[in-house]
Amino acid sequence: MTLPTFDEAMATSREGVAFSNGTEAECWMENYCGRCVNDAELRRGDGPGCALVLVAYEDRFPAEWTPDKPGHLGQQWRCMYFRSEEDGGDPEPKPIPDPPGQLTLAPREPFERPARMLAPLGTPQPAEVA
């Protein structure tokens, strides 16, 4: 999943503000943006950062933010593009390759789509087993 540009995010955003005051915004951004790989360049001083945050600064509501825990400071929205810097690696699902010499009846590409499963915060993540 590629992060949308500012223009793409602005085009899909809707009217309204995501946070009622600066405290809500700072708590949420500390919880998400403060440790997200998409905003890391802003923290290093290398670039503009996440386009979704820039859209929120324009008093628009990014379509990529969905309700999570209303009333919980710093957790009221979930960002579809959030990926912690501690996660490492590419989070995109990879298709299982066809075995060598295996004949296929139909191509897989039209039936595969990029997807990312979201889980509530604090949910244990699956681990590799031997």
Results as ranks from 00 to 15, higher is better:
Glu41Gly: 01
Gly89Ile: 08
Met10Ala: 11
Thr5Glu: 14
Asp90Phe: 00
Asp59Thr: 01
Phe61Lys: 11
Leu118Arg: 13
Cys36Thr: 11
Leu105Thr: 07
Glu58Trp: 03
Val129Asp: 14
Asn21Thr: 01
Gln102Thr: 00
Gly49Cys: 07
Ser13Val: 00
Thr12Tyr: 00
Gly122Ile: 09
Glu30Lys: 13
Gly22Asp: 12
Pro99Arg: 15
Glu112Ser: 12
Thr66Lys: 11
Leu42Phe: 15
Leu103Arg: 14
Ala127Asn: 12
Asn31Lys: 15
Arg116Gln: 14
Leu52Met: 10
Tyr57Phe: 08
Trp28Ala: 04
Asp68Gln: 12
Leu73Ala: 08
Trp28Cys: 04
Pro124Asn: 04
Gly101Gln: 08
Pro93Cys: 04
Thr66Ser: 13
Gly122Leu: 10
Leu52Cys: 08
Trp77Phe: 10
Met1Trp: 10
Glu92Gln: 12
Pro93Gln: 08
Gly101Arg: 04
Glu128Val: 15
Pro126Arg: 12
Arg35Tyr: 01
Ile96Ala: 10
Gly47Tyr: 07
Gly16Val: 00
Asn31Phe: 07
Arg43Glu: 12
Cys50Ile: 03
Pro126Ala: 02
Leu3Ser: 03
Glu86Phe: 04
Glu109Asn: 04
Thr2Arg: 15
Glu41Arg: 09
Gly34Cys: 06
Gln75Thr: 02
Ala130Phe: 14
Phe82Val: 07
Met80Gly: 08
Pro67Gly: 09
Val17Gln: 10
Arg43Ile: 10
Pro99Cys: 11
Pro70Cys: 04
Glu30Gln: 13
Asp46Gln: 12
Thr104Gly: 07
Pro114Thr: 02
Thr23Gly: 03
Glu92Ser: 14
Thr5Tyr: 10
Met117Asp: 06
Val53Glu: 09
Ala63Leu: 12
Ala9Lys: 04
Ala106Gln: 11
Met117Ser: 09
Glu24Trp: 03
Met29Tyr: 11
Met10Ser: 09
Phe111Val: 05
Pro48His: 08
Arg44Glu: 10
Thr5Val: 08
Pro99Trp: 11
Asn31His: 14
Tyr81Trp: 13
Arg116Thr: 08
Thr123Arg: 07
Asp87Met: 13
Ala115Trp: 12
Trp28Pro: 04
Lys69Met: 11
Ala130Leu: 15
Asn31Ala: 14
Arg78His: 09
Trp65Val: 01
Lys94Met: 12
Gly89Phe: 07
Asp90Val: 00
Thr12Met: 06
Pro91Gly: 07
Glu109Tyr: 02
Trp65Gly: 02
Ser84Pro: 03
Gly122Arg: 15
Leu52His: 05
Leu42Asp: 03
Pro114Tyr: 04
